[in-house]
Amino acid sequence: MSPKPSTDPLAGVAAEPGVPKPDPMLTISDVRRSFGGITAVDVDHLEIPRGLITGLIGPNGAGKTTLFNLLTGFDTPDRGKWTFAGEDLAGVPAHLVARKGMGRTFQLTKALSRMTVMENMQLAATGQSGERFLTALVAPLWRGKEQEITERADELLVRFKLDHMRDEFAGTLSGGQRKLLEMARALMVEPALVMLDEPMAGVNPALTQSLLDHVKGLRDNEGRTVVFVEHDMDVVFDISDWVVCLAQGEVIAEGRPSEIGSNRAVIDAYLGATHSEDPAHRKKRHERRAS
Protein backbone atom coordinates (compact mmCIF):
# COMPACT_ATOMS: atom_id res chain seq x y z
CA MET A 1 0.00 0.00 0.00
CA SER A 2 1.31 3.40 -0.90
CA PRO A 3 2.07 5.73 1.99
CA LYS A 4 -0.84 7.71 3.31
CA PRO A 5 -0.48 11.41 4.09
CA SER A 6 1.59 11.66 7.27
CA THR A 7 -1.05 13.59 9.17
CA ASP A 8 -4.57 12.17 9.08
CA PRO A 9 -6.74 14.79 7.33
CA LEU A 10 -9.76 13.37 9.13
CA ALA A 11 -8.18 13.51 12.59
CA GLY A 12 -10.75 14.33 15.20
CA VAL A 13 -13.73 13.57 12.96
CA ALA A 14 -16.20 11.47 14.93
CA ALA A 15 -17.51 8.23 13.43
CA GLU A 16 -21.18 9.11 13.36
CA PRO A 17 -23.68 9.53 10.49
CA GLY A 18 -23.76 13.01 8.95
CA VAL A 19 -20.62 14.22 10.68
CA PRO A 20 -19.09 17.42 9.18
CA LYS A 21 -15.58 17.14 7.73
CA PRO A 22 -12.82 19.75 7.55
CA ASP A 23 -12.61 19.99 3.73
CA PRO A 24 -15.65 18.47 1.99
CA MET A 25 -15.59 18.05 -1.82
CA LEU A 26 -19.24 17.10 -1.94
CA THR A 27 -21.89 18.07 0.60
CA ILE A 28 -25.27 16.35 0.40
CA SER A 29 -28.27 17.69 2.32
CA ASP A 30 -31.69 16.15 2.69
CA VAL A 31 -31.68 14.24 -0.60
CA ARG A 32 -34.67 11.99 -1.06
CA ARG A 33 -35.80 9.76 -3.91
CA SER A 34 -38.68 7.32 -3.85
CA PHE A 35 -39.96 4.91 -6.48
CA GLY A 36 -43.65 4.43 -5.91
CA GLY A 37 -44.00 3.67 -2.22
CA ILE A 38 -40.39 2.65 -1.72
CA THR A 39 -37.88 5.18 -0.48
CA ALA A 40 -34.67 4.37 -2.30
CA VAL A 41 -32.55 7.22 -0.99
CA ASP A 42 -33.13 9.38 2.08
CA VAL A 43 -29.86 11.02 3.07
CA ASP A 44 -30.07 13.74 5.73
CA HIS A 45 -26.53 14.94 5.56
CA LEU A 46 -23.34 13.52 4.11
CA GLU A 47 -19.97 15.07 3.37
CA ILE A 48 -17.36 13.51 1.12
CA PRO A 49 -13.80 14.53 2.11
CA ARG A 50 -11.59 16.06 -0.59
CA GLY A 51 -8.54 14.21 -1.85
CA LEU A 52 -9.41 10.92 -0.11
CA ILE A 53 -10.99 7.60 -1.00
CA THR A 54 -14.48 7.11 0.41
CA GLY A 55 -16.00 3.63 0.26
CA LEU A 56 -19.77 3.39 0.00
CA ILE A 57 -21.10 0.10 1.31
CA GLY A 58 -24.48 -1.35 2.11
CA PRO A 59 -26.59 -4.42 1.42
CA ASN A 60 -28.26 -4.92 -1.96
CA GLY A 61 -31.00 -2.37 -2.51
CA ALA A 62 -29.54 0.07 -0.01
CA GLY A 63 -29.68 2.89 -2.56
CA LYS A 64 -25.97 3.20 -3.38
CA THR A 65 -26.38 3.25 -7.17
CA THR A 66 -29.49 5.44 -6.93
CA LEU A 67 -27.48 7.95 -4.89
CA PHE A 68 -24.77 7.87 -7.59
CA ASN A 69 -27.37 8.46 -10.27
CA LEU A 70 -28.88 11.39 -8.38
CA LEU A 71 -25.57 13.09 -7.70
CA THR A 72 -24.39 12.74 -11.31
CA GLY A 73 -27.62 14.03 -12.83
CA PHE A 74 -28.81 10.68 -14.25
CA ASP A 75 -31.85 10.73 -11.99
CA THR A 76 -33.86 13.51 -10.36
CA PRO A 77 -34.54 13.51 -6.61
CA ASP A 78 -37.92 14.31 -5.07
CA ARG A 79 -36.12 16.94 -3.04
CA GLY A 80 -32.69 17.81 -1.76
CA LYS A 81 -29.57 19.81 -2.46
CA TRP A 82 -25.93 19.05 -2.91
CA THR A 83 -22.91 21.17 -3.57
CA PHE A 84 -19.83 20.02 -5.43
CA ALA A 85 -16.68 22.10 -4.83
CA GLY A 86 -18.93 24.83 -3.47
CA GLU A 87 -21.28 24.82 -6.46
CA ASP A 88 -24.94 23.87 -6.25
CA LEU A 89 -25.47 20.92 -8.58
CA ALA A 90 -29.10 19.97 -7.94
CA GLY A 91 -31.05 19.93 -11.22
CA VAL A 92 -27.96 20.19 -13.42
CA PRO A 93 -28.14 17.75 -16.38
CA ALA A 94 -25.73 14.80 -16.45
CA HIS A 95 -23.47 16.04 -19.23
CA LEU A 96 -22.89 19.35 -17.43
CA VAL A 97 -22.20 17.56 -14.15
CA ALA A 98 -19.50 15.61 -15.99
CA ARG A 99 -18.00 18.79 -17.44
CA LYS A 100 -17.88 20.35 -13.98
CA GLY A 101 -15.50 17.61 -12.91
CA MET A 102 -17.62 14.82 -11.50
CA GLY A 103 -16.72 11.70 -13.46
CA ARG A 104 -18.39 8.34 -13.05
CA THR A 105 -18.37 4.73 -14.13
CA PHE A 106 -21.30 2.34 -14.22
CA GLN A 107 -22.06 -0.87 -12.37
CA LEU A 108 -22.71 -2.59 -15.71
CA THR A 109 -19.84 -1.34 -17.83
CA LYS A 110 -20.74 0.84 -20.75
CA ALA A 111 -17.97 0.19 -23.22
CA LEU A 112 -18.89 1.64 -26.60
CA SER A 113 -18.70 -1.75 -28.31
CA ARG A 114 -18.51 -0.84 -31.98
CA MET A 115 -15.88 1.83 -31.47
CA THR A 116 -12.21 1.13 -30.97
CA VAL A 117 -10.57 1.36 -27.56
CA MET A 118 -8.77 4.50 -28.77
CA GLU A 119 -12.02 6.07 -29.97
CA ASN A 120 -13.56 5.36 -26.56
CA MET A 121 -10.70 7.31 -25.00
CA GLN A 122 -10.68 10.16 -27.51
CA LEU A 123 -14.42 10.65 -27.13
CA ALA A 124 -14.02 11.40 -23.43
CA ALA A 125 -11.62 14.32 -23.93
CA THR A 126 -13.06 17.76 -23.32
CA GLY A 127 -12.51 20.93 -25.30
CA GLN A 128 -12.39 19.33 -28.76
CA SER A 129 -13.90 22.03 -30.99
CA GLY A 130 -14.25 19.44 -33.79
CA GLU A 131 -17.26 18.11 -31.92
CA ARG A 132 -19.17 21.13 -33.18
CA PHE A 133 -21.00 20.57 -36.46
CA LEU A 134 -19.45 23.30 -38.58
CA THR A 135 -15.94 23.05 -37.15
CA ALA A 136 -16.06 19.29 -37.78
CA LEU A 137 -16.08 19.93 -41.54
CA VAL A 138 -12.76 21.76 -41.49
CA ALA A 139 -10.21 19.20 -40.34
CA PRO A 140 -7.28 21.64 -39.86
CA LEU A 141 -9.27 23.34 -37.10
CA TRP A 142 -9.32 20.22 -34.89
CA ARG A 143 -6.31 18.14 -36.02
CA GLY A 144 -3.91 19.73 -33.56
CA LYS A 145 -6.18 19.18 -30.58
CA GLU A 146 -6.85 15.63 -31.77
CA GLN A 147 -3.11 14.92 -31.75
CA GLU A 148 -2.85 16.18 -28.20
CA ILE A 149 -5.86 14.10 -27.09
CA THR A 150 -4.47 10.99 -28.74
CA GLU A 151 -1.13 11.37 -26.98
CA ARG A 152 -2.83 11.72 -23.61
CA ALA A 153 -5.06 8.74 -24.39
CA ASP A 154 -2.03 6.66 -25.36
CA GLU A 155 -0.34 7.44 -22.04
CA LEU A 156 -3.43 6.39 -20.10
CA LEU A 157 -3.78 3.21 -22.15
CA VAL A 158 -0.20 2.26 -21.31
CA ARG A 159 -0.85 2.95 -17.64
CA PHE A 160 -3.96 0.78 -17.67
CA LYS A 161 -2.21 -1.91 -19.76
CA LEU A 162 -4.68 -1.60 -22.62
CA ASP A 163 -2.23 -0.28 -25.22
CA HIS A 164 -2.09 -3.63 -27.02
CA MET A 165 -5.86 -3.41 -27.58
CA ARG A 166 -5.70 0.20 -28.81
CA ASP A 167 -7.19 -0.38 -32.26
CA GLU A 168 -9.56 -3.23 -31.42
CA PHE A 169 -13.30 -2.75 -31.01
CA ALA A 170 -14.11 -2.19 -27.34
CA GLY A 171 -16.72 -4.95 -27.68
CA THR A 172 -13.93 -7.51 -27.97
CA LEU A 173 -12.51 -6.70 -24.53
CA SER A 174 -12.99 -9.01 -21.55
CA GLY A 175 -15.15 -7.94 -18.62
CA GLY A 176 -12.13 -6.89 -16.57
CA GLN A 177 -10.57 -5.00 -19.46
CA ARG A 178 -13.86 -3.13 -19.92
CA LYS A 179 -13.71 -2.04 -16.28
CA LEU A 180 -10.16 -0.79 -16.89
CA LEU A 181 -11.21 0.99 -20.07
CA GLU A 182 -14.14 2.64 -18.36
CA MET A 183 -11.91 3.93 -15.58
CA ALA A 184 -9.27 5.16 -18.01
CA ARG A 185 -11.96 6.80 -20.13
CA ALA A 186 -13.45 8.59 -17.12
CA LEU A 187 -9.99 10.00 -16.42
CA MET A 188 -9.81 11.54 -19.91
CA VAL A 189 -12.46 14.01 -18.68
CA GLU A 190 -9.97 15.13 -15.96
CA PRO A 191 -12.50 14.81 -13.13
CA ALA A 192 -11.77 16.24 -9.68
CA LEU A 193 -14.12 13.64 -8.20
CA VAL A 194 -14.31 10.10 -9.56
CA MET A 195 -17.36 8.02 -8.70
CA LEU A 196 -16.79 4.30 -9.32
CA ASP A 197 -19.81 2.00 -9.19
CA GLU A 198 -18.53 -1.48 -8.27
CA PRO A 199 -15.21 -1.20 -10.09
CA MET A 200 -14.12 -4.70 -9.03
CA ALA A 201 -17.33 -6.63 -9.76
CA GLY A 202 -16.70 -9.53 -12.11
CA VAL A 203 -12.99 -8.84 -12.35
CA ASN A 204 -10.60 -11.75 -11.89
CA PRO A 205 -8.37 -11.62 -8.77
CA ALA A 206 -5.18 -10.99 -10.75
CA LEU A 207 -6.69 -7.86 -12.24
CA THR A 208 -8.28 -6.73 -8.97
CA GLN A 209 -4.89 -5.86 -7.50
CA SER A 210 -3.95 -3.69 -10.46
CA LEU A 211 -7.36 -1.97 -10.39
CA LEU A 212 -6.87 -1.28 -6.68
CA ASP A 213 -3.48 0.24 -7.38
CA HIS A 214 -5.05 2.46 -10.03
CA VAL A 215 -7.69 3.67 -7.60
CA LYS A 216 -5.03 4.45 -5.00
CA GLY A 217 -3.01 6.18 -7.68
CA LEU A 218 -5.90 8.53 -8.36
CA ARG A 219 -5.62 9.77 -4.80
CA ASP A 220 -1.87 9.57 -4.21
CA ASN A 221 -0.47 10.66 -7.57
CA GLU A 222 -3.17 12.87 -9.01
CA GLY A 223 -4.88 14.28 -5.92
CA ARG A 224 -8.34 13.25 -7.06
CA THR A 225 -11.23 12.51 -4.76
CA VAL A 226 -12.69 9.02 -5.13
CA VAL A 227 -16.05 7.62 -4.06
CA PHE A 228 -16.64 3.97 -4.82
CA VAL A 229 -19.32 1.37 -4.26
CA GLU A 230 -18.03 -2.09 -3.45
CA HIS A 231 -19.32 -5.31 -1.94
CA ASP A 232 -15.97 -6.96 -1.22
CA MET A 233 -15.18 -5.83 2.33
CA ASP A 234 -11.49 -6.75 2.03
CA VAL A 235 -11.20 -4.31 -0.85
CA VAL A 236 -13.17 -1.63 1.01
CA PHE A 237 -11.06 -1.90 4.14
CA ASP A 238 -7.84 -2.04 2.13
CA ILE A 239 -8.15 1.17 0.14
CA SER A 240 -10.72 3.41 1.84
CA ASP A 241 -9.80 6.36 4.04
CA TRP A 242 -13.41 6.69 5.09
CA VAL A 243 -16.37 4.33 4.82
CA VAL A 244 -20.04 5.24 4.57
CA CYS A 245 -22.68 2.58 5.06
CA LEU A 246 -26.14 2.95 3.55
CA ALA A 247 -29.14 0.80 4.42
CA GLN A 248 -32.65 1.31 3.12
CA GLY A 249 -31.57 4.61 1.64
CA GLU A 250 -30.24 6.11 4.85
CA VAL A 251 -26.71 6.66 6.08
CA ILE A 252 -26.61 4.36 9.10
CA ALA A 253 -22.92 4.63 9.86
CA GLU A 254 -19.71 6.26 8.73
CA GLY A 255 -16.17 6.18 9.97
CA ARG A 256 -12.64 4.90 9.40
CA PRO A 257 -12.49 1.34 8.07
CA SER A 258 -11.34 0.05 11.46
CA GLU A 259 -14.34 1.61 13.14
CA ILE A 260 -16.88 0.46 10.57
CA GLY A 261 -15.87 -3.19 10.81
CA SER A 262 -17.06 -3.36 14.39
CA ASN A 263 -20.03 -1.05 14.04
CA ARG A 264 -23.16 -2.65 15.41
CA ALA A 265 -25.56 -0.99 12.92
CA VAL A 266 -23.44 -2.11 9.97
CA ILE A 267 -23.29 -5.69 11.16
CA ASP A 268 -27.03 -5.77 11.72
CA ALA A 269 -27.72 -4.32 8.28
CA TYR A 270 -25.50 -6.94 6.67
CA LEU A 271 -26.69 -9.92 8.65
CA GLY A 272 -30.10 -9.41 7.15
CA ALA A 273 -28.58 -9.98 3.73
CA THR A 274 -25.95 -12.64 4.36
CA HIS A 275 -27.78 -15.34 2.39
CA SER A 276 -26.26 -13.99 -0.83
CA GLU A 277 -22.69 -13.83 0.46
CA ASP A 278 -20.07 -16.52 0.47
CA PRO A 279 -19.53 -18.48 3.70
CA ALA A 280 -15.90 -17.37 4.10
CA HIS A 281 -16.98 -13.76 4.47
CA ARG A 282 -19.75 -14.65 6.84
CA LYS A 283 -17.30 -16.64 8.98
CA LYS A 284 -14.84 -13.78 9.03
CA ARG A 285 -17.51 -11.34 10.05
CA HIS A 286 -18.72 -13.67 12.79
CA GLU A 287 -15.19 -13.92 14.11
CA ARG A 288 -14.85 -10.20 14.06
CA ARG A 289 -18.09 -9.89 15.90
CA ALA A 290 -17.07 -12.43 18.51
CA SER A 291 -13.74 -10.79 19.27
Binding site: A94, L96, F106
Partner: peptide, 21 residues
Protein backbone atom coordinates in the same frame (compact mmCIF):
# COMPACT_ATOMS: atom_id res chain seq x y z
CA UNK B 1 -14.55 13.95 -37.38
CA UNK B 2 -14.91 14.28 -33.59
CA UNK B 3 -18.55 15.24 -34.27
CA UNK B 4 -19.10 11.84 -35.87
CA UNK B 5 -17.40 10.15 -32.94
CA UNK B 6 -19.94 11.68 -30.55
CA UNK B 7 -22.77 10.65 -32.88
CA UNK B 8 -21.57 7.03 -32.96
CA UNK B 9 -21.09 6.97 -29.19
CA UNK B 10 -24.76 7.88 -28.80
CA UNK B 11 -25.67 4.90 -30.98
CA UNK B 12 -23.59 2.65 -28.73
CA UNK B 13 -24.73 3.96 -25.36
CA UNK B 14 -26.14 7.39 -24.77
CA UNK B 15 -25.68 7.24 -20.98
CA UNK B 16 -21.98 6.65 -21.47
CA UNK B 17 -21.83 9.66 -23.79
CA UNK B 18 -23.68 11.72 -21.20
CA UNK B 19 -21.30 10.64 -18.42
CA UNK B 20 -18.45 11.91 -20.60
CA UNK B 21 -19.95 15.39 -20.87
Amino acid sequence: SPWGRVIRSIREDEDAARSLG
